[in-house]
Design a protein around this nucleic acid. Sequence first.
DNA 1: GCGTGGTACCTAATCCTATTAGGTATAGTC
DNA 2: GACTATACCTAATAGGATTAGGTACCACGC
Lengths: 196, 196
Amino acid sequence: MPRLGLDTAAVVGAAAEIADAQGVDAVTLARIADRLGVRAPSLYVHITGLGELRRLLAARGARELADALRDAVAGRAGRDALSAAAGAYRGYAHEHPGCYAAMQRAPVGAGEDADAAAELYGVIRAALSGYHLRGAAEVHGIRAVRAGLHGFVSLEAMGGLRMRISTDASYAGLVEMLHLGLTTLGARVGAAGHGA
Amino acid sequence: MPRLGLDTAAVVGAAAEIADAQGVDAVTLARIADRLGVRAPSLYVHITGLGELRRLLAARGARELADALRDAVAGRAGRDALSAAAGAYRGYAHEHPGCYAAMQRAPVGAGEDADAAAELYGVIRAALSGYHLRGAAEVHGIRAVRAGLHGFVSLEAMGGLRMRISTDASYAGLVEMLHLGLTTLGARVGAAGHGA
DNA sequence: GCGTGGTACCTAATCCTATTAGGTATAGTC
DNA sequence: GACTATACCTAATAGGATTAGGTACCACGC
């Protein structure tokens, strides 16, 4: 029995593959161990338990999603940046359904996940910088965008969009609405700024 | 051992109470049986298994949510109806976090859940009737509203909205954006209609 | 009022998952 | 070339879902 030299990242990686291929519920220690060529108890060398593993998986998903958004937004601004971010967001959710779902299961606590969540928040914030939102309005704007994008892909993933109408077109319409809303929000902030 | 005269609804009801009080993951047959004063295997008289139970729980949630929305929207129209529906939607999610979460876990299939999902869709559609959307635009509008509301309460539930800014205000802003978007969508449809 | 059948509920047992305890041998270090 | 740290192992426990196979309650017939 040669040592395989596993580490926490390898375990989380195997969990991610299983999650994406077979769904989050299929992520069991037994299956992960099997995929890594190891017995289940051996995983405890690298993780403290299933709970931590799920948190790590969620954090990994958040980081990957943040990376995808950063890449998509690079060199773009305003509506263009919003559109690119929205496309990348949905793209990630489609390509990594298990990891995306894992992010929803594990409530954001402290530590690893909080960092990843903050990173994701920062990337979206940067993507919306072209709308010149400040203070509370910026937070409201970011929340609205996150709600819209997350809500859409979440409904899509749970099979909730059943009408025979293009979901691509609906998503484009949603992004359009968000653009309109952010623009209006920005105009208000601008007006208030001038008045102050 | 007197018979208790349980039925499927009672079992699902117990599951709902556990889900709301302790989270969806706490919904186990053992706990349900305990709450009902019965042994776990006895539940199989009323349900075919945990899978079905979760589907029934999701369907129950969708039906309750639809009822809440219907009540809230009754006698209102346009922006008023949207606002009331949004408030009721978030209210239900807050009061019944477990049932709401259960709706996301169980992918909508056929039968009971599909009916409940269709009912929910219909209620939201009725709530938006004041915007005079037709055809694809109506579907896009309904989807945008569902995405926004679901996304917001979902992020809220997973502890994703951590900035020290009022979530109530953010939600109001989101609803405002949706109103603006639906109005714009309605205007376009109206213009297209006249042109045809 | 009394047998009779359907079935709500039971116990016992199986399988699967997570997790802990304690051993073994491998990989790197002096 | 011996030594220590530890990656991995087997064995065992506990709790969950589920199946098999009783037992007795309840409603119905007469």
